[in-house]
Design a protein around this nucleic acid. Sequence first.
DNA 1: CTAATACCTCTAGTAACTAGAGGTTCAAGT
DNA 2: ACTTGAACCTCTAGTTACTAGAGGTATTAG
Lengths: 146, 146
Amino acid sequence: MERKTTNLMSIGSLSKAASVKIPTIRYYEQQELIIATCRSEGNQRLYSEKELQRLRFIKHARDLGFSLNDVRELILLEQQPSGSCESAHLIAARHLQSVCVRLAQLERLKHELERMVSLTESAENKRCSVIKALADHSQCEGEHCA
Amino acid sequence: MERKTTNLMSIGSLSKAASVKIPTIRYYEQQELIIATCRSEGNQRLYSEKELQRLRFIKHARDLGFSLNDVRELILLEQQPSGSCESAHLIAARHLQSVCVRLAQLERLKHELERMVSLTESAENKRCSVIKALADHSQCEGEHCA
DNA sequence: CTAATACCTCTAGTAACTAGAGGTTCAAGT
DNA sequence: ACTTGAACCTCTAGTTACTAGAGGTATTAG
């Protein structure tokens, strides 16, 4: 009744529509994240609009840096009627947290690298200061140096 | 003459001194980044101060996010007498560049995740907004959405 | 001399794909 | 109906930088 035209598409079309490479789609299938609606007589995968939506969901989550395990969980939550919101929120919040941590780390690394590179640029000494900076970590300002 | 006491250490001591795990050291050996000075009668690895310095160099570079391939190159450069500075500078600058790119990406992701999470917190509707945000990327503000 | 600890090699597993070999199916044109 | 070329199929192995485990040997402290 509310079923649209049963327009099934090949893996190639799906790939283009979701901007996800074909081998990746097959990999996701292996990981049980997405399964083709059915196969053609000749065993080729056929997908409906529903799978396209799911693949876009996965793509978006991956672009946001969620792991495939997170994605797996989110898909399960999506399928449940309700009560799943808190869990989804938790996953997102946890991920946000790790993004923040990573961000702070990268900031620090950026500073040290900048220092290293600028030292090199003004180098008048023979010994390379990039290499010196790496070898002699007493100069290092970063926290990663124990 | 300028040779210090020939105090060789086991892989365990080296590991502690450089804060690098034992299997990782063996892995680096396999990758030809560091080789033990010699072996004991019973075939156990023995290292000198020189290897400790190199391992610290590797560790520091890895902490700064250089790939093992970069490290390999930097080590080669380190061993050459001179003229290697530009190459080392190039490697560092290239890496800094990629750190900056990654940083900008992460900033964007952070914003989108924050938006997602805050939406969820104030949700009064039944359907989870985290999941909705992932499914419906027309709401998405990030550049990663094509 | 013995027991605990540290070491050895080798293989396989992790995440998230990517690449390639070798073969089949589909769609379009003649 | 036939042919050609693109798109598809499965399966295996490679990528990065390690980590974990099995099964066995060396060293060292008491």
